[in-house]
Design a protein around this nucleic acid. Structure first.
Length: 506
RNA sequence: GGCGGCAUAGCCAAGUGGUAAGGCGACGGUCUGCAAAACCGUUAUUCACCGGUUCAAAUCCGGUUGCCGCCUCCA
């Protein structure tokens, strides 16, 4: 099996074949830094993070570029509102972006170029487009002529006539065709500007990506991506200007992720359902958000709600509980024991039926050993993380069965299987960015944050547990149950194990 | 108006020709003083609806209904 990716350009899943052997150039459109990032940005970032990780796992040497749009009308507007320089706004939100991405546990891209660092490259590219007569000047502005680029519309699957018929395009007297887009905009008094052959001004939005991607990755990219909303006009325009200038294909494969809705509504500032990454991370562990997103295919829309995040949290808690139990059972030192010939242990709760005597160990071994290949198959199929995650649940179930089988001391064989399973969690978990934390630390964090929310202290809980255990020793079940119910009503669940009583947040 | 997407159990969700993954929830069992956790089992003869192609369709084709996105800044 080899990697297949859905290409927006062709509308099909295609075998992935980089232009230069194992070298892969990956470009993802980043953000315009005029405000805090929201949960939609988080999804896009996580999707491309996983793609980046998986490609490297598959042995590709990936150069990953994600840009910052740090000059644009919205930034200028914001700067005017706050009475500061546009660059102060850009810097502030770049910093916030970095904090957010760090909080989400994302890998750093190879390069994170800023538009304003590449103005001269943009001027060069625009000059070429004028020279080749794909672009025209109007006063201090420069526009790209969509009519002169014959493939215009190939990415978004439309043609010029259709789009003009829709005619929801702002009429600009200066443009030859309403769909023409600005490569260079002359600056109004008081606006930031750069000098150019066409006068003082600033670049249009699309040109930066053409320039920066070319600079870091060459004229033809292996993969270019971003949110679905960027297909038109942004990516369409990037293709037009890049291919018009170089005469070469701009990107071989286009990947676009779907949107995030909130409670079934499109997220937008006007609806007031705009959730920032900071707000999410205040409430949820970053891996909860990841598990939630990656449980859906990256191209599908996904509906954010408290309930779905809670589902994801329940799942993640269980994973970490399993990992913690394994750690307690076999310690942290990887087992070097080789597995011996499997011996049959009658399954404790599966005694009847013709399947009696099913070799649970053999089943577990198979699940653990085939996990990686199944995981890879799922990821190879257009990064089907939902499927891949499904296999983690399967793996978890057999590991828990093994733990159940070895209530006392695990046999060497079980120990070895548990260790192998845990190793898969670590190794494949890296690709999806999950299970990165030490289980105890994860659990502790959950407890601490839970206690804070509930307004309880660990001391009083431990005191009540002790009191209850005394009652249990005296077989005072009434009192013991009262204490347990009391704690439960406060949101604390108790778990009696043979040795100690554990507690956790409900 | 144009273009595109989606519709799978109570909920979330994978599955694009070979007879419905997985998660959450619910229920029954094992374990337990009782619970909890974990495990085992049950929970869609069926994939919005109607036709068609095929030995075979959730998957392909045509139509109907409903929802959503893009066409304007947007991840």
């Amino acid at each position: 099996m080899s990697l297949r990716i859905y290409n927006t350009l062709t509308g099909k899943k295609e075998g992935f074949l980089p232009l230069r052997g194992k070298q892969v150039g990956l470009y993802a459109c980043g953000v315009t830094v005029y405000d805090l990032c929201h949960i939609g940005h988080a999804r896009s970032a996580i999707v491309f993070d996983v793609i980046y990780r998986y490609l490297r796992y598959r042995g590709y040497d990936v150069t990953f570029v994600r840009n910052f749009t740090d000059i644009d009308d919205k930034i200028i507007k914001r700067a005017n509102e706050e009475g500061v320089d546009y660059s102060a706004i850009a810097e502030k939100y770049i910093e916030e972006f970095n904090i957010d991405m760090g909080g989400l546990g994302l890998e750093k891209p190879s390069f994170e170029p800023k538009a304003t660092d590449h103005i001269s490259g943009m001027i060069d590219l625009i000059s070429i487009l004028i020279e080749k007569e794909f672009a025209y000047r109007r006063d201090g502005d420069v526009f790209f002529s969509v009519e002169r680029f014959k493939d215009y519309g190939k990415l978004s699957g439309r043609n010029l006539e259709e789009m003009q018929a829709g005619a929801r395009v702002e009429i600009d007297e200066k443009k030859e065709n309403p769909l023409d887009f600005a490569l260079w905009k002359s600056s109004k008094p008081g606006e930031p500007f750069w000098k150019s052959p066409w006068g003082e001004g600033r670049p249009g939005w699309h040109i930066e990506c053409s320039v920066m991607s070319q600079k870091y990755l060459g004229e033809t990219l292996d993969i270019h991506g971003g949110g679905k909303d960027l297909i038109f006009p942004h990516h369409e325009n990037e293709i037009a200007q890049s291919e018009a200038a170089t005469g070469k294909p701009f990107a071989r494969c286009w990947i676009h992720n779907g949107f995030v809705n909130i409670n079934k509504e499109k997220m937008s500032k006007s609806l007031g359902n705009f959730l920032t990454i900071k707000e999410i991370l205040r409430q949820w562990h970053p891996e909860v958000l990841r598990l939630f997103f990656l449980s859906h295919h990256y191209r599908s829309p996904v509906d954010y709600s408290e309930d779905s995040l809670l589902d994801a949290k329940t799942g993640l808690d269980r994973f970490y509980t399993t990992l913690k139990t394994i750690k307690e059972k076999i310690g942290i030192i990887p087992s070097t024991l080789t597995s011996e010939k499997p011996y049959s242990i009658p399954s404790p709760s599966r005694g009847e039926g013709e399947g009696g005597g099913v070799n649970l160990l053999e089943e577990a071994r198979k699940t653990i050993e085939t996990f990686q290949i199944r995981f890879e198959e799922a990821m190879d199929d257009d990064f089907n993380t939902a499927q891949a995650l499904g296999y983690f649940y399967d793996l978890q179930t057999v590991l828990n069965s093994l733990l159940d089988l070895s209530r006392g001391q695990p046999t060497d064989q079980i120990r070895s299987l548990l260790d192998q399973g845990r190793e898969q969690f670590r190794k494949m978990g890296w690709i999806v960015g999950l299970f990165r934390e030490e289980p105890e630390s994860y659990m502790d964090r959950q407890k601490k944050e839970g206690l804070k929310k509930l307004g309880l202290s660990e001391e009083e809980i431990l005191k009540l547990i002790e009191e209850r255990n005394t009652a249990r020793k005296n077989k005072d079940w009434k009192k013991a149950d009262d204490i347990r119910n009391d704690l439960l009503s406060k949101g604390i669940v108790l778990e009696d194990t043979p040795s100690v009583t554990l507690w956790k947040i409900k």
